[in-house]
Design a protein around this nucleic acid. Structure first.
Length: 918
RNA sequence: GGGCGAGUAGCUCAGCUGGUUAGAGCGCCUGCCUUACACGCAGGAUGUCGGGGGUUCGAAUCCCUCCUCGCCCACCA
């Protein structure tokens, strides 16, 4: 690769062209492709570093939430790659069973058809085609924000490879007795026509009603039991009413019967602890097929379980219901049925009252429909045994969760874990590998498809259902690496992976289950850091989403300001675990931090490269300390500080030993601090001070110019390395233009080495004197509104370091537009400033100074300082402070006292001299 | 009902285990098109760190309490 002449650096940074060019060159160089042979777990000499990407839904299009998630992963990945790890960031997509099926069903609906019109095979073919056409666009989009994924390993949860893994997992769990067929009440979505897991049925607080309904006691005219229910439409499925056995009000009625209104069926009054005397009337109707609690009661009491609602949510006599549902209600939608039943009861005088009642109603997480508890047969995974090692993994520090507070949530969920319903009545997904033989009712669980019953040879049919999407994604950290082939090179080289970066919303759906699967199938945790980042919200703090129309399209941001601007903005704006607030109506303002910095960086590079020129540059190591200017020592020292702070903010990437120890458990992953540190170094130190101070040296001829060039290039080279993980494109483009030098260790910045600290340099803080002096002069100029073009004259009346100021006088003068004289005195109106090192700076201002104003100002300053000083002295006089506070704190306070006292003294003298001059 | 988090400058937030005079970005004010950058430069203003109490030599930071938001979990019909 050649270094283009610096003369060609465009004045305006063109993100589109630059980003396209460099992304392609990275790909061409295979910079993102991991090599399993180089992992030290596979005999290589590099630490492996692995992140598996949370697979976006295959039908998804990029939104700003992905932008955040992907950028975080990319920053870490690029950082580790530069650190020299064998780095694998594995991308992929999720087939997203319900979500994808819903989309295709909607397409069909527009054509006036349903999936049943097509039939299973044709529907799957159509969905496969749809996914092949439009699916995976999101992965393309990720490239435009710079994602450095290993695209050669792109995975898909419904690929043939992962299908093998899914079947293996199912069969293994079945063999271990952890998968079973259960007959019970589960969550059912009447719109998606499938069962859901507990996690997929989300609670939502709603203002509902509590209906008090009278059930007449049989044989006791005029006597009734009042039942309180929120769901009167299910009453046609009632098989009993229950009272608490200790409830004195109803004790005598236990064993009697009541007449179920509308259905006109006699049902028993039973005693069960489930009935809470405190709630409602203390009488609860028992509807075993339509409520999980009632189901348990029904089992305990051997009650019938009539199903009175269809899959679609219409009231009807479905199973064992006889004629319970009267003709006029058959086929009526459940909510319509509710109002009709309530009306009928009202008419019949059986409705005692309706109370407002706030309660949590479960909704389908995919379509929002109110979920219906429904009795059915489903496959379940027994979770308790799987949860134990996952709990231990976090408790022992094998896995850490950041931010820490989520650990309690994780632990709480696993401790109370319930069995996982994994069967879905869908067509899009991994079909359950279970075959039934009609002849003898044999059930066969098999890794291979079978055509005849292995037990009796009879004809078999496969279970109609598919597996929960999450049943394939919980295997993701190892299924993507070749499992169940335990000899797979990738599996050996890269498992366990390192970081899992995602949003807290899927902690239970996915993260905790991956941990369980990791232990269950691989015998080890799948990663050792779980990093849960915040959510992107609008200015009203509403989560951004396409459906709400408050989203930001990351590609718009990329088009407008470039990927680097997008990346820097989201990283710098996001504290650990904190939400990111952006204004979808003001992209200009929202992304100003990134855009401004990107432009600034480009301009720094443009200026620096133009001034430095194309000739080769000496290595900093070849320059003797004695040749370095104060500014050189300072910027090199600041670079050291920046490197150290970036390292502290980012790392450590992995625990020192097998588990995280107390000291390292919560360190690192503070990406915003990393970004801010790097920015501060580049903008506020390198550009604002070093670049300004080096201008004259670089314009000169001779030896010092070479020193300045070497330091400049070295500092900027390292700055670009520090910034590359968050701003990959601009840094790469500029780095490629740096002049030839020894330190160029790689063809590409993205694979170049992360900076190391520098040698320690003596006197690196002397340049601070220069900065303080310049600051003081600038402040005085501004205060007296000295026109920018006008030179001023300043005198250092007294200073402890005359050599320093005399050798840096020209530089100070240049930066502050002043001529500086060391020693001597100023006659006439003047302004004083006391520098932190005790130097007394006097600015001669001719007629510009208002003596009275100056004296007032100094007096106020002195009064403030004196009151602070007296407070400080009070503290120092306090024996509890001097004896209890740590020695270094006390010492610091003493130094401060001396310092302030001297300043007060200096101010007093100045005020006095002003008076004298007057 | 249980648990968790947040409340710091006009806005969005940093502030790690208590220790100089509480910070950044954006916005605002003043002055500058100083030949890298007006997406910039120089200077500046703005905070009883949600209220109250406590511990401490010292609290934005630890404890208690109250107020206001937000999130998660939950089989009281």
């Amino acid at each position: 690769m050649t270094t283009p002449p610096t003369a060609e650096i465009p004045t305006q940074y063109d993100p589109a062209a630059t980003e396209r060019e460099w992304y392609e060159r990275w790909l061409a160089a295979d910079a993102f492709t991991a090599n399993s042979a180089r992992s030290d777990r596979a005999g290589g000499d590099r630490d492996p570093f692995t992140i598996v990407m949370p697979p976006p839904n295959v039908t998804a299009v990029l939104h700003v939430g992905h932008g955040l998630n992907i950028t975080v992963q990319d920053v870490i990945t690029r950082w580790r790659r530069m650190r020299g790890d064998e780095t694998l960031w594995l991308p992929g997509t999720d087939h997203a069973g319900i979500a994808t099926q819903n989309i295709v069903e909607k397409q069909l609906a527009r054509e006036g058809r349903t999936r049943f019109d097509l039939g299973r095979e044709a529907f799957i073919a159509r969905t496969t085609e749809f996914v092949a056409d439009t699916g995976g666009t999101i992965l393309e989009q990720l490239r435009s924000i710079g994602a450095s994924c290993d695209w050669t390993r792109t995975a898909y949860t419904l690929s043939s490879e992962l299908s093998v893994a899914v079947r293996e997992a199912f069969v293994q769990l079945h063999e271990r007795g952890l998968i079973y067929r259960g007959h019970r009440v589960i969550h059912w979505c009447p719109r998606c026509l499938t069962s859901l897991s507990d996690e997929e049925a989300e609670h939502d607080e709603e203002a509902g009603s509590l209906y008090h309904i009278r059930y007449p006691v049989v044989g006791e005219p005029g006597k009734w039991l009042t039942v309180a229910t929120t769901r009167p439409e299910t009453m046609l499925g009632d098989v009993a009413v229950a009272v608490n056995p200790n409830d004195a009000r109803y004790k005598s009625l236990i064993g009697r019967t009541v007449m179920l209104p509308i259905a006109q069926i006699e049902i028993p009054i039973i005693a069960d602890d489930y009935a809470d005397p405190e709630f409602g009337t203390g009488v609860v109707k028992i509807t075993p097929a339509h409520d999980p609690n009632d189901f348990e009661v029904g089992k305990r009491h051997n009650l019938p379980m009539p199903v009175i609602m269809t899959a679609e949510g219409n009231i009807d006599n479905v199973t064992d219901a006889g004629e319970r549902v009267p003709p006029e209600l058959r086929g009526v939608d459940r909510f319509e049925a509710r109002s009709r039943i309530v009306a009928t009861l009202k008419q019949g005088g059986e409705l005692e009252k309706i109370e407002p009642h706030k309660h949590a109603v479960r909704h389908c997480y995919r379509c929002g429909t109110v979920v219906e508890p429904r009795l059915s047969d489903q496959w379940f995974v027994r979770m308790r045994e799987l949860a134990a090692p996952a709990l231990e993994g976090v408790r022992s520090g094998r896995i850490r969760i950041l931010p820490e507070r989520w650990e309690a949530v994780y632990v709480n969920w696993l401790e109370g874990i319930r069995d996982w319903n994994i069967s879905r009545q869908l067509w899009w997904g991994h079909r359950i590998p279970v075959w039934y033989c009609d002849k003898k009712g044999c059930v066969t669980v098999s890794r291979e498809d079978i055509t005849a019953c292995p037990t009796c040879g009879g004809a078999v049919r496969q279970d109609e259902d598919v597996l929960d999407t999450w049943f394939s994604s919980w295997l993701w950290p190892f299924s993507t690496l070749g499992w169940p082939d335990t000899a797979s090179a990738d599996l050996k080289a890269f498992y366990p992976t390192d970081d899992l970066v995602t949003a807290p919303e899927i902690l239970f759906f996915w993260v905790a289950r991956m941990v369980m699967a990791g232990y269950a199938f691989m015998g080890d945790a799948p990663f050792h850091t779980i990093y849960l980042h915040g959510t992107v919200r609008d200015t009203e703090h509403v989560k951004m989403s396409k459906s709400l129309g408050n989203g930001i399209d990351p590609l718009d941001v990329v088009r407008l300001y470039g990927a680097d601007a997008l990346r820097y903005t989201v990283i710098s704006g996001m504290g650990m675990g904190a939400d990111l607030v952006l204004d979808p109506h003001d992209l200009e303002r929202s992304f100003a931090p990134g855009r401004n910095f990107a432009t600034k960086l480009w301009n720094i590079g443009r200026f620096l490269l133009t001034k430095v020129g194309d000739e080769g540059v000496a290595s900093i190591d070849d320059i003797d300390d004695s040749r370095l200017a104060r500014a050189d020592r300072w910027i090199l020292a600041r670079l050291n500080v920046a490197i150290a702070e970036c390292n502290a903010a980012l790392g450590p990437a992995r625990p020192e030993s097998a588990t995280w120890k107390a000291g390292e458990l919560r360190s690192g992953m503070r990406l915003n601090e990393y970004a801010e540190t790097a920015r501060r170094f580049v903008w506020n130190e390198l550009a604002d001070w070093y670049l300004e101070s080096v201008k004259s040296r670089i314009a000169s001829d001779g030896d010092d110019r070479e020193v300045a060039r070497a330091v400049l290039v070295h500092a900027f080279d390292n700055a670009l390395r520090l910034l590359h993980p968050v701003i990959p494109f601009i840094t790469e483009a500029l780095w490629q233009r740096l002049p030839e030098r020894q330190a160029r260790d790689s063809e590409l910045l993205c694979t170049a080495a992360w900076p190391n600290g520098e040698r320690d340099l003596a006197g690196s803080d002397e340049f601070e004197r220069v900065r303080e002096c310049v600051d003081a002069l600038r402040a005085m100029r501004a205060e007296y509104a000295v026109p920018p073009g006008r030179m001023v004259h300043a005198v250092l009346v007294s200073t402890p370091s005359p050599e320093l100021y005399s050798s840096e006088g020209a530089l100070i003068g240049q930066l502050a537009r002043a001529t500086l004289t060391i020693g001597g005195r100023v006659d006439g109106p003047a302004m004083h400033a006391l520098l932190p090192d005790g130097s007394d700076l006097v600015l001669s201002l001719g007629g510009l100074v208002d003596i009275e104003q100056e004296r007032r100002k100094l007096s106020v300053e002195m009064a403030q300082l004196e009151s602070q000083l007296s407070a400080l002295r009070g503290r120092l006089a306090n024996e509890s402070f001097t004896s209890r506070a740590p020695a270094h704190i006390v010492e610091a306070e003493r130094t401060k006292e001396r310092d302030w006292a001297a300043r007060v003294d200096g101010l007093r003298k100045k005020i006095h001299s002003l008076g004298a001059a007057h």
